[in-house]
């Protein structure tokens, strides 16, 4: 369906202006290789600035890579970027182009610009708005809607005018659970009925675990892993995550606590540790059995998540906070 080989893009260094420091050159995608199969929901996961959006812009023909190739349904997108628009539907992060239109006109116009006749565009518009529960909002301008509703309306526009490949850049940002369900149901239906393929950009790990067939984990422009969520979790299957929350601060004077600190990722009062099961058991015993318990507010033991996978794969530790969206 979609084959990416050796895709690289470097943003040139920017010179500083009026005392502000310049920024060095950034390698936004670095020798990326991906194969997306027909009919799968494929995810790009990574923290902010990992290069997800840059990669997607190169796949959709919006940005020319410095080197490498992108082939979708056998078409060379680097050489003929305009063909991408005839193969895929893209939901970007911005809604500026549609903001001042009504939901209904946004969907209809997008369908018309995908080459549908007026009659077909209106029929598809009505179907999609009904499917996503937007019919009641059809006459409202996108600007007047809440963030989640606006996002759903943009998603509706992306669905009008069938495409075999949907490229969705964080489609459910700001949505309530009902809207999220509507999005995933619509995606699933298109896959089941038409064999549609979905490329999903997300930094929401929980979403990634539940909806994706396969996921590529990006870090600093490189694909550091690509597998099913279950397959990725197996890589850290031997480990357990221990979360410790201290009442005020950790009692560093206690040796058992000081030993744990070496392996902990700290964020304020919360420590997060990845340990082998027996290590985890003894760590919990140490902090719950001895004097450390008086300082402890809460603790949890959990099986590894994609976030742990990301850490285990060597993703930059400082980026972890950006990986999970609250």
């Amino acid at each position: 369906m979609c084959a990416v080989r050796g895709l690289s893009k470097t943003y040139p260094a920017a010179r500083g202006r009026r005392g502000a420091p310049g920024t060095p050159a950034v390698r936004a995608t670095d020798d990326v290789r991906l194969d997306i199969r027909r009919g799968e929901i494929f995810g790009l996961l990574g923290p902010n600035g990992a290069g997800k959006s840059t990669l997607v812009r190169q796949l959709t023909g919006l940005m020319r890579p410095d080197s490498g190739s992108v082939e979708i349904l056998g078409h060379d997108i680097v050489r003929y970027p305009e063909r991408a628009a005839r193969i895929l539907a893209y939901l970007g992060q911005e809604s500026t182009a549609l903001d001042e239109l009504t939901v209904s006109l946004a969907a209809e116009t997008t369908g018309r610009l995908r080459g549908l006749s007026l009659k077909d565009a209106r029929a598809e518009r009505d179907d999609v708005l009904e499917e996503l529960g937007l019919t009641a909002l059809a006459a409202r301008p996108l600007k007047k809607l809440s963030g989640g509703q606006r996002r759903l309306a943009c998603f509706a526009a992306a669905l009008v005018g069938r495409r075999p490949l949907l490229v969705l850049d964080e489609p459910t940002t700001g949505m309530d659970p009902v809207a999220r369900r509507a999005v995933w149901a619509a995606v699933d239906r298109r896959r089941a009925e038409r064999g549609a393929t979905v490329l999903l950009v997300t930094h929401n790990v929980i979403e990634a675990e539940t909806v994706l067939d396969r996921v590529a984990v990006l870090d600093q422009g490189r694909v550091i892993a690509c597998d099913s969520p279950a397959g990725l979790k197996e890589r850290v299957a031997g480990e357990v995550r221990v979360e410790l929350v201290w009442r005020e601060k950790a009692p560093m004077e206690l040796s058992e606590v000081a030993r744990l600190r070496e392996r902990a990722v700290e964020s304020g009062r919360r420590w997060s540790l990845r340990l082998a099961p027996d290590e985890a058991r003894s760590a919990v015993a140490a902090v719950t059995g001895g004097p450390a318990f008086d300082f402890l507010d809460d603790f949890t033991l959990a099986t590894p998540s994609l976030e742990d996978v990301y850490l285990a794969l060597g993703g930059s530790r400082s980026g972890v906070k950006g990986l999970v969206k609250a």
């Binding site: 628009a85 539907a89 911005e94 809604s95 500026t96 182009a97 997008t110």
Partner: peptide, 12 residues
């Protein structure tokens, strides 16, 4: 604001 992306990814 990146609004041109919307039009640029339509075959118009």
């Amino acid at each position: 604001a990146g609004g041109l992306d919307h039009y640029a990814t339509l075959p118009v």
